[in-house]
Amino acid sequence: MAINILIVDDSGVMRSMIIKTLRMTEVPLGDIHQAANGREGLDVLGEEWVDLVIVDINMPVMNGEEMIDRMQEDPEMKGIPVIVVSTEGSKARIERLEHKGAVFIHKPFTAEVVRDTINSILGLGENDES
């Protein structure tokens, strides 16, 4: 099963880094969509089939936490797994995001952490290539 992923980050360089890292993980990739803020991300989710959202927190226009809140309010989007990739260092803020169902990855990240997190959140086994 190929995984369609939406990457939401206001830095184009960081989006490229995440894509480069995803290609190193051996996760079966389908379409990779990109958005520069939460508003654009919601627009993509309204138009495309997405299996996983990878989102930054601090972004202009609409930040990642508000995007997650909007996704939870939408029956079509609330079941989509979300990974937050951020520099956030506050324990309280990280726990608040985790209570909303998101899994947190700290920047800078390694390919191994990204792979393991995706495998865990999507329930993919090491030998699962179906």
Partner: peptide, 21 residues
């Protein structure tokens, strides 16, 4: 982006992760 990441990692390293910046 590099400054953002360094600042985000530096502040908890100085002040701990119980505080919010």
């Amino acid at each position: 982006e590099t400054m953002n990441i360094i600042c985000g990692n530096l502040l908890p390293a100085i002040a701990g992760d119980d505080v919010v910046f």
